[in-house]
Amino acid sequence: MGAVRDWLTDDAPASRLQAQAGRAWSIARAFGRNPLAMLGAVIIGALIVVAIFAPWLSPHSPVGQDLGSRLLPPSAEHWLGTDELGRDILSRILHGARITLLIVVMVALISAPLGLIIGAVAGYFGGWVDRVLMALTDVFLSLPKLIMALAFVAALGAGLQNAIIAIAVTAWPAYARIARAETLTFRNSEFIAAVRLQGASHLRVIVVHVIPLCMSSTIIRVTLDMAGIILTAAGLGFLGLGAQPPLPEWGAMISRGRSFILDQWWVATMPGFAIIIVSLGFCFLGDGLRDVLDPKQREGR
């Protein structure tokens, strides 16, 4: 153990592998000293585990109706109670983790690369390319996100897939801004000039050398944005524009519980706690990542 630690904390790493492992080690240690960040990591880890193993973790079927046990309060048999069709709320929330995870992963996979490419291209080329792309980014940035997502869903039609597209379309401008700012700081560096002199194309420089350097600030921002993305998705679900029944999407579950809020409070309340816990998890994780990876930006949001 001691030898491994010495190898990791060596001031003069002998290989690229050792340097990278050492950096990862020091980041992990700094991260581990931040209790809220660790809590966030645990919550998101739990979300992923629950999403993968939902069928095995759930005590009941998420869609199986049992009209004999409608609207039962929380008990030993149904920990979080049952809904108006007698479905076990805990099992539905556990399966809902899959939908939530799908939404955040898909939105991140669509919007982050889009923003990265637009921002890196704008920053790298400068001039009129920069002006046009940033004008476009600013237009999107100064539009209200939720309203635009609503309008896009109205055009595309209700459904999980369209909700994901609508949210992604409104999420990318922040990443373009960040990628551009990062690119500007090293656009004129010697290593870029060196790669160009070796004959690398603009495309290669951007993809292989510029974008990787923008990654850490983008990842931080994406993590911090996740809470907002989850809330927007839940809002669309609440309005009936996101995931369609009988899918156990948390926002849609709250919407169905709305009619029973006064007498059977657990139907609408329980999925809300799931949303809050996961969103807080992403907030904690994002804050922690920012403090560790990018101390400059502390409290910058």
Partner: peptide
Amino acid sequence: GLLGYAVPAFWMGLVGLAVFYA
């Protein structure tokens, strides 16, 4: 402050109605 980023407004409205109105 972080709760402001994590709580769905519509959920808070429902809970608020249940508690402060009903």
